[in-house]
Nucleic acid binder design. Sequence first.
DNA 1: ACCTGAACACCGTTCAAGT
DNA 2: ACCTGAACACCGTTCAAGT
Lengths: 205, 205
Amino acid sequence: VTGRLDDVADDSAGVGLSDTEIVRVAREMISEVGVDGLSMRRLSAKLGVALGATYHHVPTKHRLLVLVGQDLYGELTADLLQVGGRWDARLRAFMIEVAEVVSRHPGMANFLMANLDEVVPTELNGVVVGILTDAGFADESVAAILSALFFFATGMSAGSSSAGSARAFADVDVRGLFEAGLDMLLTGAGARLADDRKARRAGSR
Amino acid sequence: VTGRLDDVADDSAGVGLSDTEIVRVAREMISEVGVDGLSMRRLSAKLGVALGATYHHVPTKHRLLVLVGQDLYGELTADLLQVGGRWDARLRAFMIEVAEVVSRHPGMANFLMANLDEVVPTELNGVVVGILTDAGFADESVAAILSALFFFATGMSAGSSSAGSARAFADVDVRGLFEAGLDMLLTGAGARLADDRKARRAGSR
DNA sequence: ACCTGAACACCGTTCAAGT
DNA sequence: ACCTGAACACCGTTCAAGT
């Protein structure tokens, strides 16, 4: 297969449609026109294939969004693994990145909130659980902190699923409110740590 | 105006369509089939009028959902005014109620998160601000706590906008996670209180 | 003013038919 | 296996026409 010239928009078109190519273009479209602006027809047009071809690879729009969500969180997982530090500092930096990435894809927040368990890779889940467990949190605390953080980070970056709200998070106000809320959440989480450690010592006595 | 008997399903059909009647039926439909299941056509059918009649009263589906959201929050405001106690206890009870009400209307959470400022009545906003200000919080803290609480409560009760997820919040797990997260948030908020009071004393010295 | 019902421009999804 | 393109059953919104 020799390279193609085609156009600036980077077709890269190999032999035929691939799942990864579909996800890549879908992501691009979402960041431009939002989840509501992405239709299976417009996606197919941008891919240069007929509607049925897209459906041959992806059975439903829901499934397509799940794949896009997994793609997003996959990248975030890689980033999380590269930062060190205390549990709270690590999670703080990570959650800010989650909010940034999600807010750059209008309408994804809504979808993610409703489908978090389908979308968050088990690896990412494992890493975050590991960070909290290592810090000394009890299992119930880990679950509570985890869901609170994800819902807060995803929810805060939810805007109308279409156009102009994409840069909402870049807005100083929104960003300030987000970080303040995040800090309250982490402070509250930290307050559980002492109790959890005490309970653990009592348990292993 | 004398009382009506009508039937169990309560048609109440007076002279013609009223905005409040539309909102009432829309709310009912949403709690049954979710926001996605509510279409302007099905709503019109349930109202017993033609599609155009509904549009004569409500210009758009977005506007209809705003009205429903205001209706929901309006009731919540009335409830909030009836409970007393410390700032954190009041907000805790209120937020649990918000989550309950919102989760009983599948798909509303998504809409509310994207349109909070359009939907939350200024009165409700004022009451909550009052509670926090009276407790001694600084203005920036009030804004941060307010948005964090609303996003958390709304976000946590967001499920897929359709059928079965309506009772998700009744689920012990979800409810437990919600309350745990809420407590962390309130604990974190409380930690700001000492600082805010100190700053206030220093300022008014 | 209030309402009807057809029409427009879209959707997501399916599926016979082609190669 | 992979793809085409028409068809189905819906949407939200608009608007001439009626009363």
